[in-house]
């Protein structure tokens, strides 16, 4: 397998969301796509109790040559994929830097504290402003709404993966996505996943 082209080595991606949103699945699909393209990928993630409504982060290290630490150093993210908006801010607070690119699904999942009125959830406009100010490029998607239109909110993850492809910063494409999902998914669901992927890719292409 020939060495893939990377804009930076290792290229550091953080996929973030809330337990139950399918973070782990999204990071695995993306990583498998990259492995198929000849990359060495290291994913660091925690699950278990953190799944239960807590913040969840997957760290992906993409390299042409070697395995890296499963934890990205602070301020070291190259791309942040946030399946939930305030999680984008949470990750930026620790891993943000002037060169980072950020993709945000704008559908909020309210923390219990917000539901109970103990804390406030920021206005979408505030989130957009903060993400834009703290990144080199930012793109905001309504992935969950699009996914509900496709028939299942969980497809929001796939829309986000499509968006990553649309950015054009990684050696992945629709073909390798299809190969990967065909391995782990019943045939009946492939079509919806491909459509979700395309929606994400189209939403970002040229906008970010």
């Amino acid at each position: 397998m020939k060495s893939p082209l990377l804009t930076k080595d290792p290229y550091n991606i953080i996929i973030t969301g809330v337990g139950g949103q399918g973070n782990v699945m999204a990071s695995r699909v993306l990583a498998n796509m990259l492995v198929r393209r000849g990359c060495k990928v290291t994913i660091g993630e925690t699950f278990g109790m953190s799944q239960r409504g807590g913040s969840v982060m997957s760290h992906l290290r993409v390299s042409a040559t070697t395995v890296w630490s499963p934890q990205i150093p602070k301020r070291g993210a190259d791309l942040i994929v946030a399946i939930e908006p305030v999680e984008a801010l949470r990750v930026l607070a620790d891993y943000g830097n002037p060169a980072v690119k950020v993709l945000v699904n704008m559908r909020p999942i309210y923390p219990v504290g917000v539901i109970t009125g103990e804390s406030d959830y920021p206005e979408p406009e505030k989130i957009r402003r903060a993400v834009t100010a703290l990144s080199a490029a930012a793109c905001f998607l309504d992935a969950t709404e699009e996914a509900i239109n496709l028939g299942n909110p969980i497809l929001g993850n796939i829309i986000m993966i499509g968006a990553v492809e649309g950015l054009g910063v990684l050696p992945v494409n629709r073909e390798v996505f299809e190969t990967v999902i065909r391995e782990g998914m019943p045939a009946s669901r492939i079509e919806a996943n491909l459509r979700a992927f395309d929606i994400g890719a189209a939403a970002v292409a040229g906008n970010c």
């Binding site: 953190s50 409504g53 807590g54 949470r90 923390p111 219990v112 504290g113 920021p122």
Partner: peptide, 10 residues
Amino acid sequence: LIPRREQTFC
């Protein structure tokens, strides 16, 4: 700006 995310029962 970032509300704490407390873990809870599903």
